[in-house]
C-alpha cells in the first residue's frame, strides 16, 4: 500500500475515547483529533500554472542563484519578513512618487509629505523587526508546544505506518506555517494597525522637524501642520 492509496479518506479519532491512557494531559477534550487528508487532486488551473510558471521558477538557474544569495543574507530563515518589508518599501515608494509628482502641491510641501511617507515606512519597519526579535523565543516555544501536541496526538492515534507518514508530513508543513504565520501577523499588525494609529504622528513630528531645519516658509509649515492630523486619521 502506498501513500496515494489513503489520500482519499479522512481519518479522525478521539484519543481519549480510543486510548484512554492520558487522563492527566491537557489534550483530552473535544478538539483532540488527528486528521490526515493528503489533499485534493490538482485541477487544470494548477496544472497550467505548474507547467508555465512553477516549473520554470523551480528549475531556473538564475532564481536559484538569487535564492542562494538571499539565503546567505538570511541565516535565520525569516525571509518572509523581508519579502513583506520589501513589498512595503515598494508601496511606500509608489506613494512618495505620487506625492512628488502631484501638481497640486508646491515643491517644498510635496517633499515634506514624501519624507513623511518615507518615515511611515521606516519607523514601522524598525518596530516590526524589533517586536519580531522580542517575541522570537515565545514563537519558538509555542512552535515546540504545538509540535509536541500534534506528535502526541499522532502517536496516541496508533495509526498505520502509511497513515502516520501522511500525518507527519502534514505536521511538517504545519510547523513551517507556524514559523511564518507569527511573522506575518506581527508585521501586518504593525504595518496596518499600529503604524497608522501610533507611528504616523511620530513620523509627522519628525517630518515637521526636518522641514523646519530646511527653513520652510511659514505658509508651507502651516499647510503641513494642517495636513498632519488628516493624514494620521485617514491612515488610522
Amino acid at each position: 500500500m502506498n501513500i496515494n492509496s489513503i489520500n482519499s479518506f479522512n481519518y479522525s479519532q478521539n484519543l481519549v475515547k480510543q486510548d484512554g491512557t492520558y487522563p492527566k494531559t491537557n489534550y483530552g477534550r473535544n478538539n483532540n483529533q488527528v486528521s490526515f487528508q493528503a489533499g485534493k487532486k490538482p485541477g487544470k488551473v494548477s496544472r497550467f500554472f505548474a507547467e508555465y510558471y512553477g516549473k520554470h521558477i523551480l528549475g531556473s538557474d538564475s532564481m536559484r542563484k538569487v535564492s542562494e544569495f538571499l539565503a546567505k543574507l538570511d541565516k535565520k530563515g525569516d525571509v518572509t519578513r523581508h519579502f513583506q518589508t520589501f513589498g512595503s518599501l515598494i508601496t511606500s515608494s509608489a506613494y512618495m512618487h505620487s506625492t512628488l509628482k502631484n501638481k497640486e502641491f508646491d515643491k517644498d510641501n510635496a517633499l515634506t509629505l514624501a519624507v513623511n511617507q518615507g518615515l511611515s515606512f521606516i519607523l514601522p519597519t524598525i518596530a516590526a523587526y524589533t517586536v519580531d526579535l522580542a517575541i522570537r523565543d515565545i514563537n519558538k516555544q509555542c512552535e515546540y508546544a504545538f509540535s509536541a501536541a500534534q506528535e502526541k496526538k499522532i502517536k496516541a492515534a496508533k495509526l498505520a505506518p502509511e497513515a502516520k507518514q501522511v500525518a507527519m508530513e502534514k505536521l511538517g508543513k504545519q510547523l513551517k506555517g507556524f514559523r511564518t504565520l507569527i511573522g506575518i501577523v506581527t508585521f501586518t499588525t504593525i504595518y496596518r494597525y499600529v503604524a497608522p494609529v501610533l507611528i504616523t504622528p511620530i513620523a509627522n513630528w519628525i517630518g515637521g522637524k526636518i522641514n523646519a531645519k530646511r527653513g520652510s516658509k511659514p505658509d508651507v509649515e502651516h499647510k503641513i501642520a494642517d495636513k498632519a492630523p488628516q493624514t494620521e486619521r485617514a491612515a488610522a
Binding site: T85, G87, Y95, F105, S120, A195, T200, A234, A235
Partner: peptide, 21 residues
Amino acid sequence: KSKKPKEDIPAQDAGKSGKVV
C-alpha cells in the same frame, strides 16, 4: 473627505502598510 478635493493627498495608508493597501 470634508476638505476640498485639491487638498487631498494620497492616503498614507499604504505608505505605512506597505503591502497593504
